[in-house]
Design a protein around this nucleic acid. Structure first.
Lengths: 204, 204, 204, 204
DNA sequence: AATGAATGAGGATTCATTCAT
DNA sequence: AATGAATGAATCCTCATTCAT
């Protein structure tokens, strides 16, 4: 029953955490000051420093959190399925739900791994990304095994194509503010496109 | 060859301009101070303000310059061709040369239009982007006319796919520092993939 | 005696406040930098900004303080008296004590309401001044009621005359550094002059 | 016929001079930058420095010019008259025309001699003022000789009273923006007040 | 668990001024 | 007579961070 952190503590820390995520996602790290975060939460600056050693640590904790989310979504939406196509559909669904339920963390994640951040943060991000990319490559190999992708096909390019589209959807949503980007209907179009152009039809 | 601005002036302004582009591309706007730019150029701060009203104006001028480059590359690498496939290959080549000859401006451009910048800059960027996207849509319509894309095909998704891959190549180059991303060989792989999966083979 | 602010805080804020008043009174707002104020107090710049949002706010707080002083002096030196002549003598005495006990705030006040300041400050000053002028007009009406001023007399001009002399005394003191300006003896001369030339002698 | 300064030169210098006067009068010395003055005139900064050694010199030249104006007005409106009362009426008229025809220089003059300026400017201003005050004292002595002021009267206080009212009129005009302050009618009221309360009626 | 008070370093921007032309 | 280009020093203000409580 006993916990190292009191309920109140967890609460305050969480409030800081999410307020920071939202602000970072909207304005970038450098344009968000500790002061702004504290104002948003309604605490004083030393309180923030009580929970997070410094700004970089705050960002790093957010990065870990975001990564955990990514893994969680993968485990929920992709892993359970056996069939490659089901997994790919899960990929789209997982991304959709990630983006819609945790928009701040998604933007944060995208932001970090696309451009300029404190070096340490970038390093950490790369360390997280590489295994995920490997997983994805394995996913495509599974697609080959199951006969959805021709044996001679270049999985690297298929991977880039798929990741590319996912990113484009995010850009449509966040940069061009197109709320239809992740609509059920649009995902279906994308999925149909994949089935038609990228994957083989096993039914034949 | 008459010039309204003295050689000296043009030179200093240009040096500031390019130094700023490089720094911005590497670290983002907020992490680059006027002082850093001036140090890189070897001038005092008021000199920078002699040429650029303020930091935002400097960024905006860079945006216009980058945009001009984009248009130039398009005019050089895509426009001249008649055949849709030639244009698509030109698209890849143009991107390659842009990225290799003006890496700072390319990164700058990508940075701006992917995430958080002064609001005014973002607005301006969107104003520039939309016509380019329209052009691209027209390009795909041409592909349909020339029979490279089936009439019933969803050009929107083809566009997203192609843009997505181009972005992935940039990410590979700039985030993962993969120098092969824009190698002649890799572009050929991508192009072959497109011809095989996205476009029709008219020869048949 | 309970206090919402710690002793330390009150002290620092007050030291900043009075140092600023003195410097402003001597040199004007624009010629006094935040740095100078901080040096005079012996704190760092962010400390000043901890207590005062910005320079303008500091000036506005000083304006309110000065205004409170003005009202206080009026309440102490003018209000208590019943007789009009006693009130007029209190006016002189009040001004004398204001000028001598709070020379910085008096000069500050005079400075502000004579010339060029941030627009916002000027507005606020006018808002404070107008009721005071009304009070003064009522004072002269009382003089009429009590028979010290002829019914047909133009109170507007009497007011300007009296205010004019008070200002001249201040100018003598602060511009020409004439320490006798507010001497007991000189005030008596002024008062006698008023009795002889501006007010009626009820004793007859 | 030959002049040391060309017509063009005189013109530019004058334009700078008057633009500066206007700006100084409105905003004070410190809040007006060389850049602003140059913009108002439409010349570059080195041009200003070609005509005026530095900002202080510009202010000093303005002070001399304003002083010359003061003397001119006195010579035109006060000197010519023989009768003391005529001179006093001239005093009011002269002030009125000064204020109305050269509002910038008048404000400038008032500003300078009321508060905070570069020390050198203040000194110079005092050097100019003292003789003028002496003149004014002599004027009142003439009033005594002509029987308009009782022999035993305290001329010092009468002087302060008269100067005080003149200043109040200026304050009404420039601070409270009361355009009636120097109206013919109001001057008449003031003058009548003086005749009734400050001066003797010789006609008896 | 939280804060009031404080700071050193640095941010963007502007100042009056100069020099070569 | 006028300017384009440049600058050292200063402006106001904010940053991330800390320490004693």
């Amino acid at each position: 029953m006993s916990q190292t952190e009191s309920i109140k503590s967890v609460d305050t820390k969480n409030r800081i955490f999410h307020a920071a995520a939202k602000l970072f996602a909207n304005y970038g790290f450098e344009r968000v000051s500790i002061r702004q975060i504290c104002q948003a939460v309604g605490v004083q600056k030393p309180t923030l420093y009580y929970y997070f050693k410094d700004k970089e640590t705050l960002i790093l904790e957010m990065l870990h959190f975001a990564h955990k989310l990514v893994v969680e979504y993968r485990n929920r939406y992709i892993e359970p399925h056996e069939d490659f196509l089901d997994k790919m559909w899960g990929l789209l669904q997982g991304r959709k739900h990630f983006v819609e339920n945790n928009p701040h963390f998604f933007r944060f994640y995208a932001m970090i791994h696309l451009f300029s951040t404190p070096e340490k943060v970038k390093q950490e991000m790369l360390r997280q990304m590489l295994p995920l990319l490997d997983d994805f490559k394995n996913l495509l190999l599974l697609g080959k095994q199951q006969g959805y992708i021709a044996a001679e096909e270049d999985t690297e390019i298929i991977m880039q194509t798929i990741l590319g589209i996912l990113n484009q959807l995010s850009i449509r949503k966040f940069v061009f503010q197109d709320e239809q980007a992740f609509s059920e209907e649009n995902l279906q179009r994308v999925f149909n496109f994949w089935k038609k152009h990228l994957f083989l039809n096993r039914d034949k």
